[in-house]
Amino acid sequence: MNASPGRMEFHVVARRVDAHGSRAECKEASITLDTDMQGRADAFNPAELLLAALSACMLKSIERVTPILGFKLRGVEVQVHAVRQDVPPKLESIDYVLVVDTDEDDRRLTLLHENVRKYGTVFNTVAPGTVLTGSIRRA
Results as ranks from 00 to 15, higher is better:
Q85S: 06
A24S: 11
A52I: 07
S61K: 03
P88D: 05
V76H: 10
G70F: 12
E63P: 02
A43H: 08
Q38C: 05
D42A: 12
E25G: 10
L33V: 12
A24I: 08
C26H: 09
R23S: 11
V83N: 00
F71H: 11
A41S: 13
L69P: 02
I62Q: 09
A29F: 15
G75Y: 13
K27I: 02
A41M: 09
L49W: 03
D36T: 05
V83T: 06
R40H: 04
E28W: 03
I68G: 02
L59H: 06
V83P: 00
E48C: 02
M58C: 02
Q38T: 07
A24E: 03
L59K: 04
S61M: 14
G70M: 12
A53D: 01
V83M: 00
T35Y: 03
K60F: 02
D34T: 10
G75I: 12
A24T: 03
A43C: 10
F44R: 01
G39S: 08
V65D: 13
V78L: 10
R64L: 11
R84C: 02
S61C: 15
R23G: 01
S22L: 04
L33Y: 01
S61Q: 13
K72D: 14
A47V: 15
I62T: 14
H20G: 12
L54P: 02
C26F: 08
P67N: 06
N45V: 05
S30I: 04
E77H: 14
V65A: 04
S61T: 15
A53E: 01
M58D: 01
A29E: 05
K60D: 10
P88R: 03
R74K: 15
H81R: 15
F44A: 14
K27G: 08
R40T: 11
K60W: 03
V83A: 02
L33H: 00
D86P: 01
A82N: 02
L49H: 09
E48N: 04
I31T: 10
Q85A: 05
K72E: 15
A52L: 12
I62E: 07
H20T: 11
G21L: 03
S30N: 15
G70Q: 15
